[in-house]
Design a protein around this nucleic acid. Structure first.
Length: 189
DNA sequence: TTAATGATGGGCT
DNA sequence: GCCCATCATTAAA
């Protein structure tokens, strides 16, 4: 399979959010491959009060202001990380949060990282999947279009895409910027 | 089954 | 000091 190119991430952010569904998150770590099919995403736009970057650039969110196709990984709630794909050209801070994937490769490692055998509980949430994959702040700013931490294209045809309000935010809850497919691994339907 | 709560610590008004 | 793009556990129904 081929790695998604930078042009993919330069499309409108909500389109990228929809089109990332079915694509493959792929991470080769310590010589072992971890991968999963993306089944749930959320878009975060400029001028969106729920977006970390909406009140200007800070040390934490500066990667969002950088070039498209890079990973924005941040630490939250004192114990979890969340993974985003940065969209839009340099200077425009938008991104897509990867909320859930369906485990494909490296499931034994994910089970060890998550301290559970239960497949449906491995990667069905933004904090869960980063824990399962071993993704943390050291990957913040990584280029997702080359190297060992990338998103792969796929030929998979998506039957139906659902859209719904985003989860875990207190503002802009009227915006239907969460997207997901029919899957047991979606964090919440 | 769903709802409430505690854990836990960096970021920022 | 309060907030937080979360999750696991406990309590309630």
């Amino acid at each position: 399979m081929k790695i998604l190119k930078r042009n993919f991430y330069l499309q409108p952010t909500l389109k990228v959010a929809r089109e990332l569904l079915g694509k493959i998150l792929w991470y080769k770590r310590n010589g072992k491959v971890l991968s999963g099919k993306i089944v749930e995403t959320e878009g975060y736009l400029r001028n969106d009060p729920a977006c970390h970057a909406s009140r200007g650039m800070t040390e934490r969110n500066k990667v969002m202001f950088g070039p498209a196709g890079h990973a924005y990984v941040y630490f939250t709630y004192g114990m979890y990380h969340c993974l985003n794909a940065v969209t839009q050209p340099e200077g425009i801070a938008e991104a897509v949060l990867i909320r859930a994937v369906e485990p494909l490769e490296g499931i034994e490692i994910m089970q060890r990282n998550r301290k559970t055998e239960e497949l449906k509980n491995l990667t069905s949430g933004p904090g869960k999947l980063t824990q399962a994959f071993g993704i943390d702040k050291k990957l913040n700013g990584t280029d997702l279009t080359q190297g060992t931490f990338v998103i792969l294209d796929s030929e998979e045809e998506i039957r139906k895409i659902y859209r719904a309000p985003r989860i875990g935010i207190r503002v802009a809850t009227d915006k239907l910027w969460r997207f997901y497919v029919d899957s047991e691994f979606v964090s919440k339907k």
